[in-house]
Simulated scan of single mutants.
Amino acid sequence: MEDMLTIQEMSRRSGFSEATLRYYERIGLLGAVDRDSASGHRRYDGGVVERVEALACLRSSGMSIDGMRTYVRLLGEGEAAGELRDLFAEQAGHLAAELDRLRVRLEYLQLKAQLWDARSRDDTAAEAETVREVQEVVRAF
């Protein structure tokens, strides 16, 4: 048990809160988590640590709990390369769409900053051009 991580150590390493780690264990995402025989505290072995790190990557990509459940299920079934490919391709598509939405929001904010800069300089031509550009971006929302 010496080389196993406590829940606090696992939380720091993964970025998940202790409550999230307990929840993931409860819903079956982590599999069996060993317990210290004396204290009953959770102890995370190498396999569970790897699973938590993989889930942290999936979560940071925006994958849902259902998506993570599918990932864990498919890993357990083995021979699921095609289904895993589809899962990751679908998530990549979701992330690409979110990046597009963020780019539009970024452009909007940059243009609004330009607009107020033009107004602060009393540059009516630059202000009018920026208003036109802002209107184009707003249509993209």
Rank of each mutant, 00 (worst) to 15 (best):
L5M: 12
I7H: 06
I7F: 07
E9K: 14
R13Q: 06
G15F: 02
F16W: 08
T20K: 04
Y23D: 00
Y24I: 01
Y24F: 12
R26V: 00
R26Q: 10
I27S: 07
L30N: 04
G31I: 01
V33R: 10
D34T: 06
A38Y: 13
S39I: 01
S39P: 12
G40R: 11
H41T: 00
G47W: 08
G47Y: 08
R51W: 02
R51S: 01
C57V: 06
S60T: 01
S60R: 13
S64H: 11
D66K: 14
D66V: 08
M68T: 04
Y71C: 03
V72A: 03
E77Y: 10
A81T: 09
G82M: 05
G82N: 07
E83F: 03
D86T: 14
G93I: 01
L95A: 12
A97C: 05
L99A: 10
R105D: 00
R105K: 15
L109M: 12
Q110N: 14
L111K: 12
K112R: 14
A113G: 04
A113W: 05
A113I: 09
Q114P: 08
L115Q: 14
A118F: 07
R121K: 15
R121A: 10
R121V: 00
D123V: 06
A125P: 06
A126K: 12
A126M: 06
A126G: 11
T130K: 10
T130A: 05
V131T: 13
V131S: 09
E133A: 15
V134C: 10
V137G: 05
V138K: 14
